[in-house]
């Protein structure tokens, strides 16, 4: 049974490597953010699997904490980049109706 756990752990580690490659390559900042989100989810899975692999399920508390930090971090960085872009001229001109809807939602 621990064979399966080791296989799943290895697969999740490969996922982290692939997402890291996308974070290094990604042309836009959103690609990097998506890769960071994926790495965070993979880290939660890795913590849970590692706890089971070592017979110490206490690692699950760390996984919960990591997940909460992950979602807050992604939303915070996203908001930072969005607000940092509001000063640029015509940045939201490409999508007029969506920009209006977004501004309405932000209020």
């Amino acid at each position: 049974m621990s064979m399966m756990l080791a296989a799943a752990t290895l697969a999740v580690l490969v996922c982290v490597v692939l997402a890291l490659a996308r974070a290094a390559l990604g042309p836009t900042v959103f690609d990097r953010l998506q890769a960071a989100n994926t790495i965070g989810t993979s880290a939660m899975l890795l913590l849970a699997l590692f706890g089971f692999l070592n017979g110490r399920p206490e690692f699950l508390d760390l996984a919960i904490t990591y997940g909460l930090l992950n979602i807050i971090g992604v939303i915070a960085v996203l908001k930072f980049f969005h607000q940092g872009d509001l000063g640029a001229a015509g940045a939201e001109g490409a999508a007029g109706a969506e920009g209006a809807a977004g501004a309405e939602e932000k209020r």
Partner: peptide, 18 residues
């Protein structure tokens, strides 16, 4: 949480003009 984050990401990318 993760579909919410994906939705926020794609929405921000759409507003940014990607």
């Amino acid at each position: 949480a993760s579909p919410t984050a994906s939705h926020a990401l794609t929405r921000a990318a759409m507003l940014r003009g990607v």
